[in-house]
Amino acid sequence: MTSDSLKIIHHDFKLSDNVIKKIHKILVKHENDPRNIIQILQDIQAEFHYLAEPVISFIAKELAISEHRIYGVATFYSQFKFVKPGKHQIRVCMGTACHVRGAQSLLDKICRELHIQPGETTKDGLFSIESVYCLGCCALAPVMVIDDNVFGNMSAAKVTKILRKYRRANAPRKTPAKGGGK
């Protein structure tokens, strides 16, 4: 358990000029006020999909507050991600109504299908899955959401069909002459 296993510093995230320009746009929108740090982080996540270390230390310098306070606030809220999520974010609702109608086996089915655990991203970077609490459409339990479209009354069988639809949409364009995939 040596301590270097702790490091999750994103060396791969480059602070290029247009990244900095985008960050400044967000900071100005919130009047460079450290009290709006949560809204700033939400815009940053919307822009870059996750909160990388170079971005957080850059914001800390700009707002002249401790980057550790920002990290402390960011890790408190479940909305913020620190790992690059998949292209399509799958969220399975674990609210009471969904739980009572078998959301757990639905989640297990998806994890078996994608070979990942909640909170992880598939190797090909296509899907990431997480369990959330109550998206507010309990009448259609159990509910699964992929990016913004909601799938109500889900069952294990439907999972494979829907995932295949997404996979096909992202499959690299094979030349039609060779005939479609399996």
Partner: peptide, 26 residues
């Protein structure tokens, strides 16, 4: 309008206030 960021505890008054002030919702 302030958006929450995923913390059930922020339904509690003082945690909600902390969250509005940009702190951890404790």
């Amino acid at each position: 309008l302030k958006e929450g960021a995923g913390a059930f505890v922020c339904g509690e008054e003082t945690a909600l206030i902390a969250s509005i002030m940009g702190e951890r919702g404790m």
